[in-house]
Write a protein that binds this DNA or RNA. Structure first.
Length: 579
DNA sequence: TGCTGCGCACTCT
DNA sequence: AGAGTGCGCAGCA
């Protein structure tokens, strides 16, 4: 962990250099830190390296030279760009098809060739020979470190992130780390360097590129789409858990995090381990299973070596969205189709459900007015009214459905989830859509991840649409280790137990309550607004807390250092065992 | 000598 | 047109 003091100094220096239009390179940063704070350049360099690994600082190769960025700022820009790119995605893809350059700003493109910051990212691979020479000149110690990382990155997988990704393709099978794909064609010098930079996951043949868009869409609706995250606990099979982990981590990456690596997957699975079968996860084992899932087609390795979920269905949805085309541009992007969700009511045949997941309920509202209602009626998470279901999402979905003029009612205990007021067209458009779902042992299946019917779903109470977060709280946890149960009693939820002992099981409301109790009521609201549940909380990084929640820096730092980090440390402490 | 501000060019969307 | 980046130069301490 970098020293906070140096972190501030270095970020401040980078910002300062940028503001005066000077390249924030290593030399300038060290010099300025020394001048301002008297710090030893070597120490500054070391701290900078730590910050890079922590993703606080991004190392980029811009116009043939190494430069550094304040990750928080770059990520914000990336997100903005991604959003913009989404609006014009189809056109952008046409362009990208021609020149392998995605519709991204130079900053984003730089970010794509960042020296990976954390985990088993193939750091040295993404750098040019020039950079390496430069680092050798710097003493070579950085490269040594990165070589170690490289070795550790034998099976690194890096799904496309929200813009921060390495161009490097790492061969996860033999441990080699080769520049391939666009990076392979990289040439020293400004224009060449730029020209070969593209969105990692978009540097694909057209079909895959389309998938890339879908994936990005998908990630943008992560809360709705990634319900599999919650299902991890309920899935005994490591492969299933792995797939779910990739989904979940991909969601996280959507917010501008580091490329997903095996370490992250391992870490994630580690957090789930206590809830799963208790098996010992080893790097090798996960790697093997990862390869297996790729072979099975449940995961996909991009040409750049990144791992993403296989989302063929989303491609088709993208076409649908395109055809819809009547939505406001801003609202068009949220549409995505999930892989048909299989709902297996008790004792009944499987029912495939096509899910249209909006980016957010709020955004969705306008779209509802479109001539082609995208039948967001049944959201994925609605279809997983299990502990996996996020109450707030359900609530949002309900709100959305109601605003669409579509009534959704989710009923428990032998009652049904059904849609009403759907037009005939809508029904036809989703022929497999569940009309009725028996409860009690409703089994949600996500992307082939089957939850055994033996896992009971508790307290799936009647849930009338409510506007507001957590106003419709279903049982947040029915996993074996779940400590919290909520019951509905005359519209008032009663917390029967506390899940404080296990943050993984925390709901959004629990997280908010935690921070409220910790003395950050205002910030707790931000967590709630961002729908941070326990799992998300454990996945949060410093930048997420500092910048992703739009809360003031002071409280953010305290929250991260005193709470988030502590919680994470507790729950990731066994990471070492996996890695 | 070193730092700072900024005009300007370049590249991209 | 606007944004992001940074080279190169002038002014200043």
């Amino acid at each position: 962990m970098s020293e906070p003091r140096y972190r501030e100094w270095i970020l401040e220096t980078i910002d300062s250099l940028r503001s005066r239009k000077a390249r924030p390179d290593l030399e300038r940063i060290c010099r300025m830190v020394r001048r301002r704070h008297g710090s030893d350049p070597d120490r500054t360099r070391a701290e900078l390296e730590k910050l890079i690994q922590e993703q606080t600082v991004l190392k980029v190769n811009y116009k043939g030279s190494v430069s550094y960025r304040n990750a928080a700022k770059v990520q914000r820009k990336c997100r903005r760009k991604v959003e913009q790119a989404e609006r014009s995605k189809h056109a952008a893809f046409d362009n990208a098809k021609n020149d392998n350059i995605s519709a991204r700003s130079p900053a984003d493109r730089e970010a794509l060739e960042l020296t990976p910051c954390r985990g088993p990212s193939p750091s040295s691979c993404s750098r040019s020979a020039e950079e390496k020479r430069e680092e050798e000149d710097d003493g070579g110690e950085e490269e040594e470190e990165e070589e170690e990382e490289e070795a550790a990155a034998a099976a690194a997988v890096s799904p496309a992130t929200g813009g921060i990704s390495s161009l490097t393709s790492c061969d996860g099978r033999n441990g080699s780390c080769d520049v391939s794909g666009p990076a392979a064609g990289r040439v020293e010098g400004r224009e060449d360097t730029r020209s070969v930079l593209g969105h990692a996951s978009c540097d694909l043949p057209e079909p895959e590129r389309r998938t890339c868009t879908s994936a990005r869409n998908n990630k943008q609706h992560a809360p709705q789409v990634r319900a599999a995250e919650g299902s991890v606990r309920a899935v005994a099979d490591l492969g299933d858990r792995l797939v779910a982990a990739v989904w979940s981590l991909t969601e996280r990456n959507n917010r501008g995090h580091a490329p997903l690596g095996l370490k992250e997957i391992l870490g994630y699975l580690g957090t789930q381990a206590a809830h799963a079968d208790g098996e010992k996860l080893t790097r090798h084992r996960v790697k093997v299973v990862l390869e297996r899932e790729i072979e099975k087609g449940r995961l996909r390795r991009t040409r750049l070596g990144h791992i993403t979920e296989n989302i063929k269905e989303e491609e088709s949805m993208e076409v649908e969205c395109k055809e819809d085309g009547k939505m406001d541009e801003e609202e068009a992007e949220p549409l995505t189709q999930l892989e048909p969700q299989t709902i297996k009511p008790e004792g009944e045949a499987e029912v495939k459900v096509h899910v249209h997941a909006p980016l957010s309920a709020g955004v969705e509202v306008k779209a509802c007015g479109g001539s082609v209602p995208h039948t967001p009626v049944i959201m994925e998470e609605e279809l997983q009214p299990s502990p996996l279901t996020s109450p707030s999402k359900l609530s949002s979905a309900h709100q959305e459905a109601e605003q669409c003029g579509t009534e959704v009612e989710m009923v428990a205990q032998g009652e049904s989830i059904h849609t009403e007021s759907l037009t005939q067209d809508q029904r036809e458009a989703i022929p497999d859509q569940v009309q009725t779902l028996t409860q009690d042992e409703l089994v949600a299946v996500s992307d082939g991840v089957t939850i055994p019917p033996s896992i009971p779903i508790k307290n799936y109470s009647v849930c009338k649409a409510e506007v507001g977060v957590s106003s419709c709280l279903l049982t947040p946890s029915a996993s074996p280790g779940a400590a919290e149960e909520r019951g509905m009693n005359g519209g008032v939820f009663v917390k029967s137990e506390s899940s404080i002992t296990n943050p993984v099981d925390w709901t959004v409301a629990d997280v908010a309550s935690y921070f409220t109790a910790a003395g950050f009521p205002e910030q707790a609201l931000a967590f709630r607004m961002q729908e941070i549940d326990g799992k998300s909380l454990l996945l949060m990084q410093r930048n997420d807390v500092l910048t992703g929640l739009s809360i003031r820096l002071g409280p953010a730092l305290k929250i991260y250092e005193r709470h988030v980090k502590v919680l994470q440390r507790t729950h990731f402490q066994d990471d070492e065992a996996f890695c």
